[in-house]
Design a protein around this nucleic acid. Structure first.
Length: 712
DNA sequence: TGAGGGATGGGACCA
DNA sequence: CCATCCCTCA
């Protein structure tokens, strides 16, 4: 059968597994997506299951889309009826179909995290809560954290006064959501979980329907998602979970690797299949990754290998400053280009977004086109958010969030006082802001009345229009277009608004069922769109290690490999923080096909001051036989020659008085703490003390008189 | 209401 | 250093 051609024995075993729940430990580059999609195609082709009996769930829209594309390429039958999507997308589908049973209005709106935060702020204000004691971000985190553990406000932990207050806020927030008919991301999950657990008929219906549940990136699931999956899987159904515990890098957002072990137990998985043959990277790169990750204690265990050759050694570069590092990188990229490697085949990775600035500076100076991942996505842009708010108001009068966003944008002379009066009226009347407008009289009432009339007119005028026309009409009548036309730098925003009309047109074309406004709004919330246009151009790819997960490049630069940066400073205080950082490094290394550069810098400008760092421990964890130093090994750099143009690089950190024989930035060795860098100094003579960054041992103040220090 | 000053804080991500 | 927020003042 052609479907199974060219699968290796483990892949074949996974794809053709008999009807039983299974855990597939799929290493980086081991053909995970291929196994997942071929499994589905095989099940259908062999008559094991009909398309309607398949539920496949991923975390990102990109992954879901890719799965669908691959499946349809393999199968002649239509993929309609198959449920393939993200957790949130599928929950949305479930809740739209059973909105009444779920206790939601038919046209419920979805809040993204920015919407959610502003709703939290509004609730805090209405409860007269001190925002210094209860920072909105923290409250939001509390609410989401509890929802992801399946806990409602009445069940959330409240050990003290503070916790009880948080629970009250949580409860008030949920009430307000219910009043407005809005649902946040965590709520999508929790609400559909509750729907299925309370409603036996529905549960049994879906359990009977989905015979095969397949999960991608299983190591990233949180507790609630795991329980959701269990709930959907009936006695006659099985779960095919694919994941890699070594690539679990999202504990900070609630991912629970422990789900893999729980899954083995709960579903009586007796044969874990390991996909360890790697089709991406050269041997040296895999050996480095294997050696690094073997330093983690909590692992299910796995070793990547390739049938291809060792390839080149990994290249390590030590720079004096972040500026030199960036400059070296730019030159190296140009050299690779000259050797025929396209820019989009090169990935530049860093631990935190702040690092991109200096890299961009150097690339810009060198005239190298680049593309930075991350940042604002299409549906998150201010002008788009405003446009969507108008659409939301057209769809629903209950949506206070949308109301507040645009009631005075473009400005209509509706200030804080009028809104306060309106909010009072709404509260006493138990209605939404929009519906409270008629209760207000006087000057404020007039301005607000005009706004309400505008919305009412928009509703009437757009009735029966096609989606793109609704959007177009709203843009013109709301005053948004005029506003940005008058704006000096409004050209980009106007372009985006036009793009919104196109997005609506595309949406209508792609959907074969729901084409109404509500489903378009749900689409906008669930799929925020691309970060940046310019897909086609040949540009260097800059991104954080996190966003590089799942991607691969011919050549990869991992930059800023310094203690305190990667591994990150904060990871020391976290449970298992260091192991997660190491997995992150593992992800970074395994992105490279042929060439891998690892670079670090002795000095780095961070938060406005120069920091002196030692090389990341992760460099030590890579066997020396696999690497080649492009600079003299560790710390013995000659003083900088005439190198770089950037003013920031030329400016040396302010010299500080140091005890004779020592200087800031000097590498030293201590008998107990090992290698370190002098960061600061105080006192002279017998009182002299030095502050030294010993990397993994931490930052220490040592009295020169007692400490046994020697120059490195 | 919006421009501009001053304080503040700063990890990573997707839906 | 730089972005963001909040507050003040014209």
């Amino acid at each position: 059968m052609s479907l199974l051609a060219n699968l290796n024995p483990e892949q074949l075993a996974a794809v053709t597994l008999p009807n039983q729940s299974a855990l597939i430990l799929a290493g980086a580059g081991s053909g995970k997506t291929r196994v997942l999609t071929t499994r589905i195609a095989w099940l259908i082709q062999t008559g094991n299951v009909s398309p309607a009996g398949v539920l496949a769930v991923t975390f990102t829209n990109k992954a879901a889309k890719e799965m669908l594309t691959r499946i349809s390429a393999m199968l002649p039958v239509s993929t309609r009826g198959m449920w393939v999507g993200t957790f949130h997308g599928l929950c949305n589908r479930l809740l739209r179909a059973h909105y009444r049973d779920a206790g939601l209005p038919q046209l419920f709106q979805i809040l993204d995290s920015a919407d959610q935060l502003s709703l939290v702020k509004r609730v805090l204000k209405s409860m007269n809560v001190d925002e210094d004691r209860f920072p909105p971000k923290q409250v939001q985190h509390f609410i989401n954290g509890n929802k992801e553990e399946g806990r409602r406000a009445s069940k959330a932990d409240a050990f003290d006064e503070f916790g009880r207050r948080l629970c009250e806020i949580y409860a008030a927030y949920d009430e307000q959501c219910q009043r407005e008919g809005v649902v946040d991301f965590a709520e999508l999950l929790l609400r559909s979980f509750e729907l299925l657990s309370k409603n036996e008929i529905l549960r049994e219906h879906y359990q009977g329907r989905f015979r095969h549940v397949l999960v991608d990136e299983f190591q990233d699931t949180n507790r609630l998602q795991y329980r959701w999956l269990k709930l959907l899987t009936g006695p006659g159904s099985v779960i095919f979970a694919v994941g890699d515990d070594d690539q679990s890098i999202y504990a900070f957002r609630g991912a629970n690797v422990g789900n893999m072990a729980d899954f083995e137990r709960d579903f009586h998985v007796d044969n874990v299949i390991r996909l360890e043959q790697n089709y991406r990277s050269h041997g040296n790169i895999l050996d480095a990754a294997n050696a690094l990750i073997s330093n983690n204690r909590k692992r299910l265990g796995k070793n990547l290998w390739t049938s291809e050759g060792h390839g080149e050694p990994l290249r390590i570069y030590e720079a004096q400053t972040d500026g030199y590092e960036a400059h070296w990188l730019a030159e190296e990229v140009q050299a690779l280009n000259r050797d025929g490697l396209a820019r989009h085949e090169i990935g530049v990775l860093y631990r935190s977004n702040a690092q991109s600035r200096i890299l961009e500076h150097a690339l810009f100076s060198a005239g190298i086109p680049y593309r930075v991942y991350g940042g604002l996505r299409f549906f998150e842009r201010m002008e788009i958010k405003h446009a969507l708010a108008y659409l939301r108001l057209i769809a629903s009068s209950e949506d206070d969030s949308a109301f507040l966003r645009v009631v005075n944008f473009p400005v209509r002379g509706i200030g804080a006082r009028s809104l306060e009066a309106l909010q009072d009226a709404a509260r006493t009347g138990g209605t939404s802001l929009f519906n409270a407008v008629p209760k207000l009289a006087g000057k404020a009432g007039n301005a607000l009345g005009a706004f309400a009339a505008l919305i009412a007119a928009l509703r009437k005028e757009t009735e029966g229009l096609a989606l793109p026309e609704i959007v177009e009409h709203m843009l013109a009548k709301s005053g948004l277009l005029a506003y940005f036309q008058a704006e000096k730098d409004g050209a980009d925003r106007l372009e985006n608004l036009q793009e919104l009309v196109n997005a609506a047109a595309t949406f209508v074309q792609e959907q074969d069922d729901a084409q109404d406004l509500a489903s378009f709004l749900a689409h906008a919330a669930l799929e925020a769109g691309e970060h940046q246009a310019g897909e086609g151009s040949d540009a260097l790819q800059l991104m954080t290690v996190h966003s590089a997960k799942g991607l691969e490049f011919q050549a990869v630069f991992v930059t800023g490999l310094e203690e305190g940066l990667f591994p990150h400073e904060q990871s020391r205080n976290e449970d298992d923080g260091l192991e997660e950082e190491r997995r992150l490094m593992y992800v970074a290394i395994t992105r490279a096909r042929a060439r891998l550069y690892l670079s670090f810098s002795q000095n780095r400008m961070l938060h406005g001051q120069t920091r002196y760092n030692v090389a990341s421990r992760f460099l030590d964890e890579i066997p020396v036989g696999l690497v080649k130093w492009l600079t003299p090994r560790m710390g013995s750099m000659p003083l900088p020659g005439p190198v770089l143009a950037s003013a920031r690089d030329v400016a040396k950190p302010a010299p500080r008085a140091t005890p004779a024989g020592w200087r800031i930035g000097q590498n030293v060795v201590h008998a107990k703490f090992g290698q370190g860098v002098i960061v600061d100094a105080e006192g002279q003579g017998p009182d002299a003390r030095l502050q030294i960054n010993f990397g993994r041992q931490g930052m220490k103040w040592l009295a020169l008189e007692y400490a046994k220090l020697s120059a490195a």
